[in-house]
Amino acid sequence: MTKSERKRALRGRAGRMKGGRGSGRASTGNVRLWGRHAVEAALLNPDRVHRKLWATREGVESLDGELPQDFPIEYADTPDLDRLVARDAPHQGLVLECATLEDRLLDEVLDEADGRPLVFLDQVTDPHNVGAIMRSAAAFDAAAIVTQDRHAPPESGTVAKSASGALESVPWVRVVNLARALEDAARAGYWRIGLAGEAEAVLAEAMPAGPVALVLGAEGPGMRANISGHCDALARLPITDRIESLNVSNAAAIALYAIASRSGA
């Protein structure tokens, strides 16, 4: 079936949105994703259990790739979709309800990492930042991001939209004890580098030849003392004194690029 034929078939199967109103929340155990990249990546992820797609006709036309056969779609107008998501969420005419992703275990990720970098986030709670870091992790082939169960945002439409599809491809490991997880990474051969603005060494000086676990703290307080104490080295990015610091997602992107550049040298 060609792309145009598939879209005609989808239009034929789709119903109209009943009532045109929603709570803005997904049912228990589910999550609502919005925006073309986030929705498209979730639809193409075989590990997702999909529930329902609400969409404008223009939103469906924007999708690429194959959608599951007989997928339940309800067509809706933009104001109706606005009520299904967070206020002012840029849904681009697409809102998907699906089950949350299954938990990933750190041991499992370490077995599959093959030396690719890991990203540990210490109490980074802003979902926009976590999503943006996940996007950079996908761009620079990181094996996973690791956060605590607590003091980290849940899987959400905001994280998925900021990740621009990377939520579906970058494993997100949630652990009870981040310090213990760093110890597990060290035993697996990772050199743990914590980014800290007060560090004496710049990142290039602290970089090892082997696998790197990059550790970043929340904006403002930075890493907690216990977490920085579990790093093999602390390093800073060589920014000028014209600015005090970088956003944590920008810092992650620069550091991951530096790791990737070193690996490819």
Rank of each mutant, 00 (worst) to 15 (best):
L94V: 05
A89T: 05
I73Y: 10
P90V: 04
V49E: 15
L110G: 07
I73M: 04
R32C: 11
D107I: 00
N45Q: 06
H37C: 00
A89M: 06
F71I: 09
G93F: 09
D82P: 01
A86G: 12
T100W: 02
S62W: 02
D103V: 04
S62V: 02
L101Q: 15
P90Y: 09
A76F: 05
A41S: 14
H91V: 02
G65H: 03
D88Q: 15
E102I: 00
G35V: 02
R57Y: 12
E108G: 10
T56C: 08
V85Q: 03
L81G: 03
N45L: 00
V95L: 09
L110Q: 07
L84K: 04
T100K: 15
E97M: 07
V49Q: 14
L67S: 05
E74G: 04
A55F: 08
E108W: 00
A113L: 10
L67P: 02
A76Q: 07
T100Q: 15
T78I: 09
A89K: 11
H50A: 12
R32M: 12
D107F: 01
E112W: 01
Y75A: 08
E66M: 14
R36S: 05
R87W: 07
L106I: 07
E74S: 15
D88A: 10
D77F: 07
A86R: 14
A55M: 05
R32Y: 05
G59H: 03
D77S: 12
E61Y: 04
H37W: 01
P79V: 04
W54K: 01
G93C: 06
R57D: 14
R51H: 13
L53Q: 04
C98L: 08
L106N: 11
D70P: 00
L96G: 09
L84M: 12
D80H: 15
C98H: 04
E40Y: 04
L105R: 11
P72S: 10
W54R: 03
R57Q: 13
L44M: 15
E97D: 10
D64P: 01
V49N: 09
A99H: 11
V95Y: 06
P68D: 05
L94K: 01
D70R: 10
T100F: 00
L96I: 01
A42K: 07
G35H: 08
H50C: 10
G59V: 03
A38H: 06
Q69W: 11
A89F: 06
R36I: 08
T78Q: 14
R32W: 08
D103K: 11
V60P: 04
E102S: 15
R57V: 10
P90Q: 07
E112F: 03
D82A: 15
L101E: 14
L105W: 02
D80K: 11
H50M: 13
V60S: 03
L44T: 08
D88I: 00
P46Y: 06
A41H: 07
L53C: 01
A41N: 06
D103Q: 14
D103R: 13
A86H: 10
H37L: 09
G35R: 08
Y75G: 08
T78N: 12
R87S: 14
P79E: 13
L96F: 06
F71T: 03
L84A: 11
R57A: 12
A76G: 11
E58V: 06
G35A: 05
R36D: 05
R51N: 13
P68C: 02
V109T: 14
V39L: 02
D70Y: 09
L44H: 10
T100A: 07
F71C: 02
A113P: 03
A55E: 10
D64G: 12
D77Y: 10
